[in-house]
């Protein structure tokens, strides 16, 4: 496959290799994600003129500085509003968000939910290492229950956030799960996500050996990668939902796969996906375009009518006025009843 080989040789053009070595610890998974992203960009022919990188705070956020692209290193958690606005103003650009799990799902969780709701056409690559690494190893939103961290010395008492359920709360969003061990799969997932026309999210399980792995019993980064290899299995190709420790790409229920490997039967919503929220109130707004605004003549006619009506009202006794105002009786009837001459 000469095409593939060529792609792999030129991906370094996407990287600022003169800034290497990176600041990431030896054994960190982020470099692998960056390499796969660079390869995908190269393969898709995306460059610094048509692709913008938006990153968050934390170890992952530093990736923007190493990619040879215009990049916005946003505030902690604020990648999505920035990315969505960039895409709105420059729809011809590809906008790729790279952020950690803490950035995406904790401090930026509200933005995640709402960018999904609006189906913002951006791609999110989430480096999900299940820990706050840069600050030394505190419990993150995806830290598994029971994991001991600096901020949960007795084990994390909480349930990790369900990113798949959140992303797939929208019938339009693409969700992919992969790991740093499954590099070819990761690249496929990133490519599918970038090419997806709506919101797409790649949840990449990766290893933080220094500030998480060693504390929970792994000897080395390789040890963690071996764990990923042995634990994570590919989901069936037409899976409409990923079970725990399954990797795969889950397309929205109403979209056939664009990857050429699925001819799934008529798609059904995933069990955790309600396509239509129950009991939503149908809009009473007239779907037809609004009538043209009244002309000046029409306004003048209405005003004359209103003035004439006010003049008639003035002739009525107070109690009758009140009844007319409450629409208990028409003005004409009130005039008759009160015996007032309209002239």
């Amino acid at each position: 496959m000469p095409e593939q080989a060529m792609a792999e040789m030129t991906y370094k053009d996407r990287l600022k290799v003169d800034l290497f070595p990176t600041i990431w610890c030896p054994g960190c998974g982020i470099g692998t994600i960056m390499m796969q992203l660079a390869m995908t960009l190269d393969e898709l022919g995306l460059d610094e003129r048509n692709t913008i990188i938006v990153t968050g705070i934390g170890c992952t956020g530093r990736m923007g500085g190493y990619l040879k692209h215009e990049a916005v290193y946003t505030l902690h958690g604020r990648t999505l509003p920035v990315a969505e606005a960039i895409k709105t103003v420059r729809p011809e650009m590809n906008v790729i968000v790279v952020a950690g799990d803490g950035d995406t799902a904790s401090i930026g969780g509200n933005h995640l939910v709402h960018s999904i709701r609006r189906n913002a056409p951006v791609t999110v690559l989430c480096n999900n290492n299940e820990i706050y690494g840069l600050t030394g190893g505190q419990t993150g939103p995806t830290t598994p229950t029971g994991t001991k961290t600096l901020s949960s010395p007795a084990g994390n008492p909480n349930t990790p956030i369900n990113l798949q359920a959140i992303v797939r709360s929208s019938p339009h969003a693409l969700y992919a799960k992969t790991t740093v061990y499954h590099q070819i799969h990761m690249r496929n997932a990133i490519r599918e996500a970038i090419e997806w026309p709506g919101f797409s999210f790649v949840d990449i399980t990766s290893q933080c050996i220094e500030n998480n792995g060693r504390r929970i019993g792994f000897d080395s980064a390789n040890d963690m990668l071996t764990f990923f290899r042995k634990t994570y299995k590919r989901a069936p190709k037409d899976a409409d939902h990923l079970a725990p420790f399954e990797i795969g790409i889950v397309y929205p229920a109403d979209h056939p796969s664009r990857n050429g490997h699925v001819s799934a039967p008529a798609a059904t919503a995933a069990p955790d996906t309600q396509v239509e929220p129950a009991g939503s109130i149908p809009s009473r707004t007239d779907p037809e375009p609004k009538a043209a605004p009244p002309t000046d003549d029409e306004k003048a006619r209405r005003r004359a009518e209103s003035v004439a009506r006010a003049a008639l009202m003035a002739k009525l006794p107070a109690d009758m006025k009140l009844r007319v105002a409450r629409r208990e009786i028409s003005l004409e009837d009130a005039m008759r009843e009160a015996g007032v001459d309209p002239e």
Binding site: T74, P81, V82, A85, I86, T88, V89, H114
Partner: peptide, 13 residues
């Protein structure tokens, strides 16, 4: 928070 950050993204764009 989102509107302020969206303004930043839009301006940079």
């Amino acid at each position: 928070i989102a509107s302020a950050n969206a303004v930043i993204g839009a301006s940079l764009a």
